[in-house]
């Protein structure tokens, strides 16, 4: 399995394979990040705890945790960290790595939404807001989808009236002319990144 070559050092694995992971060893456990996080109380393991767990080799506990999926990308921790760790990016990197290895919790709502978002934008090169919202409402099946859509119908109608939502996006979306170029660029970038991390397709 991937990660085998780092078997004795999860820290080394994180340093090599996680975005900005080389910063993890710099954490001095002050906890300012955790106290600064808007979703702080909802983290099973706040950032500084994750950093200590990485150093303690708790691979499954870290990568299988839904903690880093609580990151809202507000960067409060980043600007307050006395050691200047790019904590937001490390959280993104950990979540991405866990997702890439298939170890992230299934049905984690932000994991699901983040994947939908990326698939949505990479299709035409631009986000299709209508399809993204509908995709989110209908992710748990048709019946629940209708229920969700009805619950949000006043907001949807309001947006329609304010000309901030266009039903025609379903058939004729905003799109890049170079959508195929974008597909080629993204495929190549992923190939290079996977190769660098020793991950197979």
């Amino acid at each position: 399995m991937s990660g085998e070559r780092y078997r004795n050092s999860f820290l080394r694995e994180v340093e090599h394979n996680v975005e900005e992971g080389h910063w993890v060893k710099m954490c001095m456990q002050c906890g300012v990040c955790s106290g600064s996080c808007p979703f702080g109380p909802h983290w099973a393991h706040p950032p500084q705890e994750l950093f200590m767990m990485i150093r303690a080799g708790k691979r499954e506990e870290v990568l299988g945790s839904d903690a880093m999926w609580m990151c809202t990308s507000c960067y409060n921790c980043v600007v307050r960290c006395p050691r200047k760790l790019p904590i937001t990016h490390i959280m993104h990197g950990l979540a991405n790595y866990a997702h890439r290895l298939g170890l992230a919790p299934k049905n984690q709502p932000t994991r699901q939404f983040a994947k939908m978002f990326w698939d949505n934008l990479s299709k035409t090169g631009r986000v299709n807001e209508l399809k993204l919202s509908l995709g989110l409402y209908f992710k748990d099946g048709f019946k629940q989808g209708i229920r969700n859509a009805l619950a949000m119908k006043d907001i949807g109608l309001g947006m329609l009236k304010a000309k901030r939502l266009n039903p025609l996006e379903l058939v004729k979306p905003h799109a890049c002319k170079g959508a195929k170029d974008i597909h080629a660029i993204l495929a190549k970038a992923k190939e290079i990144e996977d190769r660098r991390k020793g991950l197979s397709a």
């Binding site: 993104h92 979540a95 991405n96 932000t110 983040a114 994947k115 978002f117 990326w118 698939d119 970038a189």
Partner: peptide, 8 residues
């Protein structure tokens, strides 16, 4: 939010 699937 593109991080999860997009990578770096």
């Amino acid at each position: 939010i593109g991080y999860a699937e997009g990578g770096e």
